[in-house]
Every structure is written in C-alpha cells, then in structure tokens.
Amino acid sequence: MRSAHEASGAEMVTVAVRRVPLDRSSESFLDYLSPSLQILPNTAGCYTAEDAVRTARLAREALQTDLLKLEVIGDQTTLFPDNEQTLEAARILVKEGFVVLPYFNDDLIMAKKLLDAGCAAIMPLAAPIGSGLGVQNPANLRIMREQLPDATMIVDAGVGTASDAAIAMELGADGVLMNTAIAESEDPAKMATAMKLAIEAGRLAYEAGRMPKRLYASASSPLSGVIK
C-alpha cells in the first residue's frame, strides 16, 4: 500500500471511522501511512445525516482536523449516495466548522446546492463505488465544470484503469479519488504510477484545450501542389 501511495504521488488519503476491536487484534491503519500524507477522514458506511454527523465529530476529535469527506449512502447494492441526507449533513457540518468534501451523484443542481451550503469542493461519482466502470456520464461532468468554473471538482469513485482517470481530468476535474482500481490491480504500485501519468496527461490535455470533434475528415497536409 505504501509503495502504491508513493508511486501515485497522492497528497491526501481518506480513512473510514470504525469501532476499535476490543481484543486488540488489529494494528492502527494510520501507522502504515507516510506522515507526509494529509489524512482525510470520511463517513463511509453512514446511511443517515445523523450518523454522518456523529461520525464526523468523532473523526475530528481523533485526528484534530476539520477536513471531512462526507459520504451518506442510500442503497446497499449500488452504494449510490443519498443526496438529500448528504445535503442535510453538509449544512450541519459546515455550521460546525468542518471543511466538507461531499461525495454525490453527478448532478449539477445538487452540486450547486452543496456549494451554496458552504462545501469546500464537489466530489461527483464517475460510476458506482468499486465498479471500475469509468466515467459513465461525461456530459454531466463537463456541464458541471462549465457551469461551476471556480469549484474544486474531484471525481470520486468508479475509475477502473488509467484511461478512466485521464478522461475525468480531460473533462476538467481537479483531481480523482480512487482505491479499488489500484488495490485490486495485479501490481498496485505499477497501476498507481499509471494513474499518476494519466492524471497528469488528462490535466495537460484539458489545459491545452482539445480540438473540436468532426464527423468527416479534414486533411492535415496542404491540398495544393499534389502531383498530377
């Protein structure tokens, strides 16, 4: 895991809050993280705004950070977020001084509401968590980018391989949050390197501005002076 973290160039790692095993059977996960990484506690596993707020308060107390990845799930099969509960939790947590980074469905109106509530960034999904399907609705991400040019947009969940990460970045994401694509690859450190390169390539392509798509060919060599 540590070599994958290093290879990826990631600056932030998200961790979930869970009950401590009382038999002391597990070591602290945090001890395996490089001290240079910013730890971002999350509310993974919460199904209500109330549970997410409780979890967030515990995380802040333990880690002494206001940063929080807010995740309120609505359904066990898809792990799709419950946008209504997410928004409710976001409003409470922002008032309590948290820096809220919410995971949500790729929906522009929800993104606007989360930003209005005071969220520090928006984190739309690309596809269901752990599915590896890649960006399922590129138009939604592109619209979000165009309509919310000043928002920090992190694509959270659904990336399967390097090209998926590149696509997310080409659509204007500021970053990508991932786990399974690297953790379930056969060589996590190598996949992490691929992700780093894909993210850099995608960002450069976004900044460079891609050519328009055309249905028909457009000759790239001059048409005059062809031998007859």
């Binding site: 895991m1 961790v15 979930a16 869970r18 401590v20």
Partner: peptide
C-alpha cells in the same frame, strides 16, 4: 460508549 479508530477502504 463507542470507541473508534480509522481503517482503510477497499476489500
């Protein structure tokens, strides 16, 4: 009493 710590994601 609930006592919590932190864990990673994934399987």
């Amino acid at each position: 009493i609930e006592i919590v710590h932190f864990v990673g994601g994934g399987k």
